[in-house]
Amino acid sequence: MKLPPLALLTLAGVGGLPTAALGHGVILERQATEAIEVTAQYDTGEPLTEAQVLVFSPEDPQNPWSQGRTDDQGRFWFRPDQDLVGTWEVIVRQAGHGGLVTVEVEETGAATAENPAAEGDDSGSSMQSASVNGVNDVANLSPLHRVVLMGTTIWGFIGTALFFWRRKD
């Protein structure tokens, strides 16, 4: 049995699904970005609220790259510049209490907590934890994108099938 050339091409397309989808003009892009959350609290569990936060990039350990204050739960977020690879330092201070946590930004753009438990205090009641969490913001496709991707692909198959199914008058 001799197979029609067009059918062979379409079967090959089944293996290359994204090509079929993108052929209908849907452009999907993904971008992984990371935010760092720092949480500061005493070993009593009490958060350091409204504490001063200083963020230092690997390029300049002397002058803060960013600064702000913790919220009412002792939390602070920042998004390091992924081009500045190396060790980032975050200092949290409040009325003589202080601690430091470091975050390693690698070539891939991934951020890793070097010392998730921050150091330092002024009272023996140390800042016990400074958790650092990487967050992927845009990496997953949205439900709408998934529906569009599947719909356009299915319609491609159906259209092709109908092409062969049609009656020749």
Binding site: L3, P4, A7, T10, L11, V14, L17, R30, A32, E34, E106, T108, G109, A110, A111, T112, G134, N136, A139, N140, L141, R146, L149, M150, T153, I154, F157, I158, T160, A161, L162, F164, W165
Partner: peptide, 27 residues
Amino acid sequence: WAMLLLVASGGFLVGCGAETPEAEAPD
């Protein structure tokens, strides 16, 4: 061949459902 294409498209749907796009975990 039209039937084969329809069957193939059905298989693709199952494949799509099983392979939810996952973000790569940061290193």
